[in-house]
């Protein structure tokens, strides 16, 4: 069992790198775009709000798998022909962005209106209010579901193997395809995914502690 795992380890490294790449791209892009769209959803003019709402509801109603295949096979119809890696990243990012929009909305809307008013009263502009008063408080409610989403993204990145992208899941199957020894490899794979996500959870607990202060 153990030597099967040790044998497989180097072959999994490249796949592991792809998994990390996919997860990192998905999480960072969805965070950046999601926060902007989330703010637009709360503070923007009506047409923009409707658009973001439509986007978020539509994407969240489609299973990720369907989304992946839709981007890979469907997008060429509107002129966007993506290689499998980028199609998978795009689909995963779209999915996560919709989720981030909802986390942002929930977190910001849970802050009492009085906070915005007090910030206005001392003469802060919209951007200053968001940066210094709203977001620091929203962080506390934003972080737990978001961190959850991050670990989901890492786990969900395994779906890219269905487009033939050589992530860690696919690498595992490649070695099994050669040696036919499934069990040691699945255990090894689970262990690696676990290590990644456990570190992320530990990091998240530290982050949450930093942003916890008793709300008045």
């Amino acid at each position: 069992m153990l030597d099967a795992m040790l044998y497989a380890l180097p072959f999994l490294m490249e796949g592991l790198w792809v998994t990390i790449e996919v997860s990192f791209l998905t999480v960072s892009i969805s965070l950046a775009v999601g926060v902007v769209l989330g703010v637009a959803l709360i503070y923007g003019p009506l047409p923009l709000r409707l658009l973001v709402r439509l986007f978020s509801d539509t994407i969240r109603g489609i299973p990720i798998l369907v989304l992946i295949f839709f981007v890979y096979y469907g997008f060429p119809a509107i002129g966007i022909d993506l290689a499998s890696f980028w199609a998978a990243v795009t689909a995963l990012t779209l999915f996560k962005t919709a989720q981030v929009i909802e986390y942002v909305r929930g977190a910001v809307q849970s802050i009492p209106q009085g906070q915005t008013e007090a910030a206005m009263a001392i003469g802060l502009t919209f951007r200053e209010r968001l940066t210094n008063v709203i977001f620091p408080q929203a962080m506390r409610r934003f972080l737990p579901p978001w961190i959850n989403g991050v670990t989901d993204a890492v786990k969900g990145s395994a779906l890219v193997s269905l487009l033939g992208v050589t992530d860690m899941m696919y690498s595992i199957n490649q070695v099994i395809g050669r040696t036919y020894e499934a069990l040691p490899l699945y255990i090894l794979g689970a262990a690696i995914y676990f290590i990644i996500n456990y570190s992320l959870s530990a990091l998240s607990r530290r982050l949450e502690r930093r942003f916890s202060f008793v709300q008045a």
Partner: peptide, 9 residues
């Protein structure tokens, strides 16, 4: 790339 002897690494 996951099925010997047809297509594998």
């Amino acid at each position: 790339s996951t099925n010997a002897p047809w297509h594998f690494e």
